[in-house]
Computed example of a mutant assay.
Amino acid sequence: MFKEYLQKLQDQHLLRRLRTIASSTGPTVRLDGHTVILLSSNNYLGLATHPAVIEAAVEATRQYGAGSGASRLVCGTLTPHEELETALARFKGTDAALTFAAGYLANISAVPALIGKDGLILADRLCHASLIDGCRLSGATFRVYHHRDMNHLEQLLTRRLPGKPTLIVTDGIFSMDGDIAPMRDIALLAERYGAAVYVDDAHGTGILGETGRGTLEHCDVETRIPYHMGTLSKAIGSTGGYLAGSAEFVAYLVNTCRAFTYTTAPTPAAAAAATAALRVIRQEPERRARLWQNRHHLAQGLTSLGFRLAASESPILPVIVGDPDRAMSLAHTLLTLGVYAPAIRPPTVPASTSRIRFTITADHTDEHIDQALAALAQAGRALNMI
């Protein structure tokens, strides 16, 4: 069974294999004995390798050990966890926050805790897989609206049964296209029709908004959206997920989220690293400014070369290729030219939209970007893509 399935994937150019990077995930990495420019990391602000973040993780490991020992409700809550949740609540401007071992766990646990089989979930078509899984696990009636299509969302809201509990679910920044959810319009519809809104801001946290608080700050709807979720593994440079909100909301999650109750707590190192990263975000706003400068540089270069870009508004810059085999060929050619950016293929993205999903960070230099664009020009011409 396994062999036949894998062969089928191979024949369709959809087989995935792991590749080992022998270095930290900086702007360049060591891969197969060579130093290459990395253009596929979500380490947007470069905080995974920031000296203060690393030192905080090392010190927490020395003081508290490598593991947390148990789930948070048994004996796994340690001082670094409490310090992180206090820092997150302050950062997000909420009463409280709760952390999880992974953003995926937060979504598949929190959504079912918020709505059950008597409710209705309306989710954007391009929501992250963890959100979709959480929606299905809830047992609620589940409907998908066209991507960022507020007319379709309103149609679904008007068709629901009167008084039916309703939760609108969306990403803040969509991870494969890089565009931003129309949060003001979503908030307006939610208020008009008496629905609640749950936002996964994994890719917006740390990079959007005047102070980096994320998509809700960027769209000026922080006080209008009750359920804020994000991750610690992207711009924050550590690992884990969180939800932020009122003290009652967080207490409710502690008592209802199965992935919180039955999962060992995040490591002390991960929690301390994330707390340190939040301090850096506050103290070094120039990192965010540099990220957006780099994003403009790369986006302008890709467009000038003639590549087909998705409608991105973020440091995620997908070049749409279409055919998975051609996407693999482009990724392979780029790697031979010193740029590592793997092909993204179905089922991660819809059929016929295979792509190279370029991501830029604050730590990339102008020289890195210019070298990458030169490689893209050479690869694109060699493969008749530009």
Rank of each mutant, 00 (worst) to 15 (best):
M1T: 11
M1D: 12
Q7T: 05
D11L: 05
L18D: 13
L18K: 07
T20I: 15
T20E: 11
V29M: 12
V29Y: 01
R30V: 11
G33F: 06
T35W: 14
S41I: 02
A57M: 10
V58S: 08
A60E: 08
T61W: 00
G65E: 12
A66H: 14
G67T: 01
G67Y: 05
G69R: 07
A70P: 04
T77C: 13
P80L: 13
H81P: 01
E82N: 12
T86F: 03
A87K: 14
A89F: 11
K92R: 06
T94V: 10
T99W: 10
Y104G: 07
A110R: 06
V111T: 09
P112R: 09
P112K: 05
A113C: 08
L120F: 05
A123D: 00
D124V: 00
I132D: 12
I132L: 14
R136I: 09
G139A: 03
A140T: 00
T141M: 09
T141W: 01
F142S: 01
F142A: 00
R143M: 12
V144P: 00
D149L: 06
E154H: 08
L157F: 00
L157K: 00
V169H: 00
D171T: 04
G172H: 03
D179F: 05
M183Q: 06
L188I: 04
L189A: 06
E191P: 10
A195I: 01
Y198W: 03
Y198H: 13
D201V: 09
G209F: 03
T215D: 07
T223Q: 15
P226C: 09
Y227I: 02
G230H: 05
T231A: 15
S233I: 07
A235H: 10
S238C: 06
G241C: 06
Y242M: 09
L243V: 15
A244Q: 05
G245F: 03
A247Y: 05
A247G: 07
F249L: 10
V254D: 07
T263V: 14
T264G: 08
A265V: 02
P266C: 02
A269P: 01
A270L: 13
A273P: 10
T275Y: 06
P285T: 04
E286S: 08
R287H: 07
R290I: 04
L291C: 12
L291S: 04
N294T: 00
N294M: 12
L298V: 03
L298R: 08
G301M: 12
G301I: 02
S304V: 02
R308A: 15
E313D: 04
P318A: 14
V319N: 13
P324R: 11
S329G: 12
H332L: 06
T333H: 11
A341E: 10
A341Y: 11
P346A: 08
P347F: 06
P347C: 10
P347S: 11
P347D: 09
T348A: 15
P350E: 14
A351H: 09
S354Q: 05
T361V: 08
D363A: 15
T365A: 15
D370P: 07
L373A: 07
L373W: 04
A375W: 01
L376T: 02
L383D: 04
N384M: 06
